Simulated scan of single mutants.
Amino acid sequence: MKSYLKTKDYSVSKEDFELVQHPELEMLMTKPQPKDIERYYESENYISHSDSRKSLLEKTYQFVKRVTLFQKVKLVDRYVQDDKSILDIGAGTGDFLFAAAQKGWTISGVEPNSEARKRAFQKSVVLSSDIESVMHRKYKVITLWHVLEHLSDLENQILKMISLLEERGVLVVAVPNFNSYDAKYYQEYWAAYDVPRHLWHFSRNAIKKLFHKHGMEVVETRPMVFDSFYVSLLSEKYKTGKTNYLRAFQVGLRSNINAWSTKEYSSLIYVLKKA
């Protein structure tokens, strides 16, 4: 397999990794893919398993998360009018499901990390530890907010998710886009590579082709415009050792401006339905 980029785990282990091109799809794979992947999540630095607001970076992350929660719930509301059942895979600390419940959704969620599940439970959001625990029923909507890139055994996981969708159900997948301007600007320091926790790195074409062969079609693509700013902020820290807010804002803004014409935003939401 052809090498694309050499990078490292800047947030936890500091170990070196390589991104290689997939032989068939326009996507990248992390090499090596550790068998003991759990230890790379066991850090206070892994922010999506935390509700911490101690540092300015953490406060920025939590602010962006609150702003985008409303947008995410509004998006799924557009596709379902009745029997509003939703399964969130990789639910983290449960904020999205909590917001969905406030809008009348019947919620279910999966989160492998025990500390994140505890924080979700404090919000009255009860999460399962694995997908097998929620396979007793089908759902109108299944969401993966920056989760697909974490899943080992990717093809089988996709098949499981599709099997849990109702006949006219909707799958919503949000992932980083390595063809974005900020990814090309920061190269090996781009925070959204997040190796080795991110096992896969997707392009728009890769998502379309990956799900098409499983009978799913992309019916809508939406940008996550805040991601370029947050990812650039973290990338600046990895690259320079400093939190350069001005430079990060400039890169994030330019990434979004470029994407108006190229459609290559830092992160994208894909809405998929059975063909």
Rank of each mutant, 00 (worst) to 15 (best):
G104F: 13
Y265E: 02
K59L: 04
E111I: 01
V219S: 12
D95R: 10
R254V: 01
V219C: 11
V231F: 06
G109S: 12
D194H: 05
Q187D: 14
Y189L: 06
K103F: 07
K274W: 05
T68G: 04
A100F: 08
K6L: 02
W105Q: 08
F178L: 07
P176G: 03
S266K: 10
Y181V: 02
E167A: 14
Q250V: 06
A192E: 14
V225T: 15
N256L: 02
K35H: 09
S3V: 09
K118C: 02
A101H: 08
N113Q: 12
Y189C: 07
E111D: 10
V76S: 06
L87E: 08
F17L: 08
Q102V: 03
S13W: 07
V67G: 03
K273E: 11
L97C: 04
I162M: 10
E188F: 00
F229G: 01
T221R: 13
D9E: 07
S124F: 11
E38W: 02
P112A: 03
M224V: 13
Q250S: 05
S266A: 07
I47N: 05
K160W: 03
P196D: 11
A206D: 00
Y265N: 06
G104T: 13
D9N: 04
I131A: 03
H201T: 08
H212L: 11
W200L: 00
Y185E: 01
E155K: 15
A191H: 15
V172T: 08
W145C: 02
K35G: 10
L19D: 03
K242T: 13
D16F: 09
E188Y: 10
G90T: 06
L151R: 11
E26G: 08
V12I: 11
V80K: 12
S232R: 09
S152C: 01
F178G: 02
M216Q: 13
E115N: 11
L97I: 13
Y186T: 05
L199T: 10
Y4K: 13
L144A: 12
I37T: 01
Y10V: 06
Y139G: 05
K65C: 01
D51R: 07
K54L: 12
L233I: 09
Y270S: 10
